[in-house]
Simulated assay, not measured.
Amino acid sequence: MPQFAANLTMLFTEEPFIDRFEAAAKAGFKAVEFLFPYAHTAQQVRNAALEAGVQIVLHNLPAGDWDAGERGIACLPDRVNEFREGVARAIEYATALGVTQVNCLAGKAPAGADPAVLRAALVGNLRYAAGQLGAHGIRLLIEPINTFDIPGFYLHGTAQALALMDEVGSDNLFLQYDIYHMQRMEGELAATMQKHLPRIAHIQLADNPGRNEPGTGEINYAFLFQHLDRIGYTGHIGCEYKPKTTTTAGLGWLAGL
């Protein structure tokens, strides 16, 4: 049976962020993930997790001005210094929180930008981050995201991500495979995850259409969960979906496994 992690950015949003750890534990989750911890002190987040008895398995590098619509800065050549500062900040938090995997959002390609320049910036930033994080025992992940939800997102396919990883050439760079995003962009979910399993360090889910909980759309999650067991995936699966009504009401899929 897969290990599920509640994404606290998407789930239990009826509660203040710090209270979501306890809400996740009460719902039966033993692990959590979220986009960013940086609005709170590392000690506040650590205490909330410890008191709830849940493990934090993932958070992201700082990703620019999220409220202004930025979705990462790693591909932006004029933001390299800011990116490196973010790596240091992520290491500080991940170390304090016991997090061993950090995800990097590549960002949106500016209109008219030279793709080669963006790729060079991203490759350089990933090499730097992989080295810095690796020195602290933390894995670096990259995540392709669909361009329907985030138009212009630079990294949007599995093959593109793997080629980028090859170019970076680090043994500390892995794929975060989001089933929802890749269903929208390319399909072939089961075969892709099986083929590239050694390079996948984390999986996330939501159903499509709607990005709601499993069972509300077209993806056969009962099959995929069994498939992941068969092929030997041992990591966590982050539940990064928008509950169709409330988080608690939408957990029937989990209780039915």
Rank of each mutant, 00 (worst) to 15 (best):
V87K: 09
D149Q: 14
H181F: 08
D67M: 14
I142D: 07
N146Q: 04
A121T: 05
G250I: 02
T100R: 14
G107N: 06
P2A: 14
T41D: 09
G238N: 12
F223Q: 13
Y233H: 06
Q160P: 06
V99E: 13
L173P: 08
H59M: 15
Y233F: 15
H136T: 04
A159I: 11
D149R: 05
R46K: 15
A27H: 02
R119I: 00
M10Q: 11
E85N: 13
T13E: 11
H59I: 01
L164E: 13
L76Y: 01
T234S: 07
N7P: 05
V32Q: 00
N47T: 13
E218F: 07
L162G: 10
Q226M: 04
E188I: 01
A120H: 05
D171H: 09
I219D: 02
G98I: 11
L257W: 14
A90V: 08
N60E: 11
H227C: 00
H227D: 00
A31K: 10
R230V: 00
M10H: 09
V123Y: 07
Y241T: 12
A27L: 00
I203A: 12
H196M: 10
I145Y: 00
A6N: 10
I142A: 12
M185I: 10
Q176A: 04
Y221N: 14
P37W: 12
I231R: 10
G64Y: 04
G131E: 15
A96G: 13
A74L: 02
D114I: 01
A52D: 04
A24M: 12
A25H: 07
T100W: 05
L50E: 03
A222W: 08
G112V: 07
A63I: 00
